Amino acid sequence: MPPVFRFAPSPNGHLHLGHAYSALLNFDLARQSGGRFLLRIEDIDATRCRPEFEAAIYQDLAWLGIAWETPVRRQSEHLADYRAALEKLSAEGLVYPGFESRAEIARLVAQREADAPWPRDPDGAPLYPGAAKSLSPDQRRRLIESDIPYALRLDMAAASARASGLNWVERGEGPDGETGIVAARPEAWGDVILARKETPTSYHLSVAIDDALQGVTDVVRGADLFWSTSVHRLLQHLLDLPQPTYRHHRLILDGEGRKLSKSTAATGIRELRAGGAAPADIRRLVGLP
Rank of each mutant, 00 (worst) to 15 (best):
P2C: 10
V4W: 15
A8R: 00
A8T: 00
L17N: 05
L17G: 11
H19A: 13
A20P: 00
A23M: 08
L24M: 12
F27D: 05
A30S: 09
A30Y: 05
A30G: 11
R40V: 01
I44V: 12
R48M: 05
R50Y: 00
E54N: 05
I57P: 05
Y58F: 12
Q59G: 00
D60M: 08
L61D: 12
W63C: 02
L64W: 10
G65I: 07
G65T: 02
I66Q: 10
I66W: 13
A67V: 15
W68P: 11
H78Q: 03
A80W: 06
G93A: 01
L94P: 07
Y96R: 01
F99V: 02
F99S: 03
A103G: 02
R107Q: 12
A110F: 10
W118I: 11
S136K: 06
S136I: 03
R140I: 00
R141C: 08
L143A: 07
E145N: 07
L152C: 13
A157F: 00
A158K: 06
A159I: 09
A159L: 06
G165K: 09
N167A: 11
W168I: 01
E170G: 05
E173W: 11
G174R: 09
P175W: 08
P175M: 03
D176W: 15
E178F: 00
A183E: 15
A188I: 02
G190V: 03
D191G: 09
V192E: 05
A195E: 13
T199V: 14
T199K: 11
I209V: 13
D210R: 13
L213Q: 15
D218A: 09
V219D: 03
F226G: 07
V231I: 15
H232L: 02
L234K: 03
L235C: 06
H237G: 01
D240F: 08
L241T: 06
R247M: 11
I252H: 09
I252L: 10
G255T: 04
G255A: 14
S263Q: 15
A265P: 07
R270H: 09
G275C: 09
A278G: 04
A280Q: 04
L288D: 04
